[in-house]
């Protein structure tokens, strides 16, 4: 069902990762994502995998829940893999079907690309799973605050991002309700050709847009009624402060990045073509 989409959602649990300062998690996620592109060898991937498994264990988010979050991107993944698989002409030819050929380089690229994409998604979902939208906003705002100097409205940008994140589950819930209501009136979203299916979306999209605008309007009113006027001079109930564990986390993260790059580049492990 549509409610299974978990990208960008918070998953309540009691773990060290949940307690970490959001700035640490934001920076670490960024580092992890970048690190995935700094090597292309199996030793590096093994290291990145072990690290990711470790983090998942620490986060206490069920693996099944994380895997479910990957479902919506399966399509994208397939396209990437197929393109990489067939469009590379270098390397030895492994399989030849009519004019399409799979080469060693193509296969290697396809597999690496798929793994990278999956790790990218898991890595960033882990951040949102363990960080509430409020914390995330605070973290982004704190990290981007230097940009205030060049007149970027950092608080407003962060606020917009967190509202957008907060609205994902609300809109999904709404979509679910509307879909069911139209199904109760005999609507059919599953059969027919592409045109028919696209047309079948209208009874969902129109009420969804109407409700999104209504909600946005209500939210704006509610904020106005409580005298919200942006970030200037605004203080926080829970200001962000680094604790011991945050520094440890930074340490572990730096060690990982150094290790993965070193191993990925200099450990000459080779398995078949990888």
């Amino acid at each position: 069902m549509i409610r299974d989409i978990t990208i960008g959602q918070y998953y309540p649990a009691k773990s060290v990762l949940h307690r970490l300062d959001p700035r640490v998690k934001l920076v670490s996620t960024l580092l992890y994502l970048v690190s995935l592109f700094l090597f292309r060898s199996i030793a590096g991937y093994l290291t990145a995998t072990l690290f990711l498994i470790g983090i998942i264990r620490v986060s206490k988010v069920p693996v099944g829940y994380i895997v479910k979050g990957l479902k919506p991107v399966v399509m994208l993944l397939m396209i990437t893999v197929v393109f990489n698989l067939f469009l590379k002409k270098e390397g030895e030819v492994l399989v030849q079907v009519w004019r399409l050929s799979v080469t060693t380089v193509g296969l290697r690229n396809a597999v690496y690309m798929a793994v990278r994409l999956i790790y990218l998604i898991i890595g960033s979902s882990l951040m949102t799973f363990t960080t509430t939208p409020n914390e995330l906003t605070d973290g982004i705002e704190a990290l981007l605050s230097p940009l205030n100097k060049i007149r970027v409205p950092v608080h407003e940008v962060a606020m917009m991002m967190s509202i957008a994140l907060r609205f994902i589950p609300i809109l999904l819930e709404e979509t679910d309700k509307i879909m069911k209501a139209q199904q109760a009136r005999g609507a059919d979203f599953e059969s027919g050709n592409i045109m028919q299916r696209a047309k079948a979306m209208i009874p969902i999209l129109v009420p969804l847009f109407v409700s999104a605008f209504r909600r946005a309007n209500d939210l704006a009113m509610a904020m106005e009624a409580r005298c919200y006027r942006g970030g200037e001079g605004r203080t926080k109930m829970k200001p962000l402060r680094y604790k011991g564990r945050d520094l440890t986390a930074y340490g572990i993260m730096s060690a990982y990045v150094i290790a993965v790059v070193a191993i990925g580049r200099y450990v000459p492990l080779k398995v078949w073509i990888f």
Partner: peptide
């Protein structure tokens, strides 16, 4: 459903009410 008015979508009331029978 509860708050069924949230599922209206057609250009006029008549067409919206026809949605169910049309699907039949």
């Amino acid at each position: 459903f509860q708050y069924p008015e949230h599922q209206l979508f057609e250009i006029d009331v008549m067409t919206d009410v026809c949605f169910g029978p049309k699907n039949q």
